[in-house]
Amino acid sequence: MIYLYTVGLLLFVMVAWVVVQAAANRFAHHHPEFGTARRMGEGCCGKCTGDTCENEHKH
């Protein structure tokens, strides 16, 4: 029975994450003044100057 609870919890977390991403994209679409919604692993590495990124050499 614990197995079913665990699988259900994992499915709930994954669906919740998709819902949060959709809400963030919807908010970004309705409020373009804040820019686009950033996805995990994309965008600035935190140490960007101009168009370069010191960490991964991509921007």
Rank of each mutant, 00 (worst) to 15 (best):
M1Q: 13
M1F: 07
M1D: 13
I2F: 09
I2K: 09
Y3G: 12
Y3R: 15
Y5A: 11
Y5L: 14
V7M: 04
G8A: 01
L9H: 06
L9F: 04
L9D: 10
L9Q: 03
L9K: 12
L10F: 02
L10H: 02
L10T: 12
V13W: 06
V13T: 15
M14C: 12
V15Q: 14
A16G: 05
A16V: 14
A16S: 14
V18T: 11
V19F: 03
V19P: 02
V19I: 10
V19Q: 04
V19G: 00
V20R: 05
Q21I: 14
Q21G: 05
A22Q: 08
A22K: 13
A22S: 15
A23G: 03
A24W: 06
A24F: 07
A24N: 13
N25T: 03
R26E: 03
R26S: 09
R26Q: 06
R26P: 00
R26N: 06
F27W: 12
A28S: 04
A28R: 00
H29W: 09
H29L: 11
H31I: 02
P32K: 04
E33V: 04
E33R: 13
F34V: 11
G35A: 02
T36E: 10
T36Y: 05
T36F: 05
T36S: 01
A37S: 02
A37H: 02
R39N: 06
M40R: 00
M40E: 06
M40T: 07
M40K: 04
G41W: 00
E42I: 07
G43T: 09
G43K: 00
G43H: 01
C44N: 09
C45Q: 08
G46A: 02
G46L: 01
K47W: 09
K47H: 11
C48H: 05
T49H: 12
T49G: 09
T49F: 10
G50M: 09
G50D: 03
D51W: 12
T52H: 09
T52G: 03
C53P: 08
C53A: 02
E54G: 14
N55P: 05
N55Y: 07
E56C: 15
H57T: 01
H57M: 06
K58Q: 15
K58W: 08
H59Q: 14
